[in-house]
Design a binder for these strands. Sequence first.
DNA 1: GTCTATATGTTGATAGAC
DNA 2: GTCTATCAACATATAGAC
Lengths: 183, 183
Amino acid sequence: MLKTKKEIILETALHLFADKGYEATPTSLIAKAAGVSEGLIFKHYVSKGNLLEAIVKAGYRRATDKSKSLIEEKDPAKFISNMLDMPLKLVEDERSFWRMQFRLVDEEIAQKHHLRFSHSVKQKLVAAFAQLGYEEPEMETEVLMLLVEGLWKAYLTSADKPHFVKMLDLSKKKYIGELIDNR
Amino acid sequence: MLKTKKEIILETALHLFADKGYEATPTSLIAKAAGVSEGLIFKHYVSKGNLLEAIVKAGYRRATDKSKSLIEEKDPAKFISNMLDMPLKLVEDERSFWRMQFRLVDEEIAQKHHLRFSHSVKQKLVAAFAQLGYEEPEMETEVLMLLVEGLWKAYLTSADKPHFVKMLDLSKKKYIGELIDNR
DNA sequence: GTCTATATGTTGATAGAC
DNA sequence: GTCTATCAACATATAGAC
């Protein structure tokens, strides 16, 4: 199926935002790279901020779809392990999106979606730790989330998958080693 | 001692950069907030990027001084514990600086100093883990650094010190629990 | 849907007087 | 050292023709 110019604009902007940053990417450059006129961007997306929002929204929709199987896991130990696997699974095929996303420290739109996404995970994580009898499930969750986010960014910049998998394995051993040794 | 206008400009810019971000803070606003003319900023600092560099440089000089005692620790177990304590120790009194710093994802100047700083720590961390007989000291270091950076950012945004200290304690237990139980 | 102008506003930076 | 005045460059966004 052919891509509409609207879609081309979106994808081109995503890659440019990921590479150069949102603020540092003028709409004129997006237009040139996408092979369309600058005016067309505004016809389709009204404003630059709106274009960004469309990109972020679409990205998180894909992420939600892709992570569904990991999140629906009922066994608490496996669920925790799944959370550590999320970076690896989600970044695959979506490197540009996540590079862009983790750069958008100043844009509240990006922050909003990130919070919503991680919040939904957090709830289940606390429940999982509680179910396993941990003394401070909330604390455990917060520290684990810190590590997951760190792994996420690490995998984004490393691009060395085997090396990253070693980091991931060590993390699992440290955090839930006793739980997954026999999985 | 009186502050020179040059110093006032530097400090004002630091706080504005921390609050609104570097790109989003025009020199006109810095001038207004500092109570000086816009031209004076350029007389003293030549360019906006130069002003940022001066701020970053000064901040890391203070950080290096303050972390000296933590870094010079010779006992490997205590040294590792010290690294986990760094966020708490360094962020104190320097909240604005570190908030600004962790926002500067797009500015290479900031990245450069951050890398240099963490690299110097990394070397010693690998040595410490090796000295303690860990199988993969490099991996241990990388994962620990991930967590330290996470704690750093967490403490910056939480502002709830007791809560953060609980996270810190749990982290220590997970990472070096067997080593520091009796310290 | 798409393009070619063009309007409008900001920003970083400079020149010159005091 | 400091201020006032000013500029060129650039960015987002709009209007109107095809």
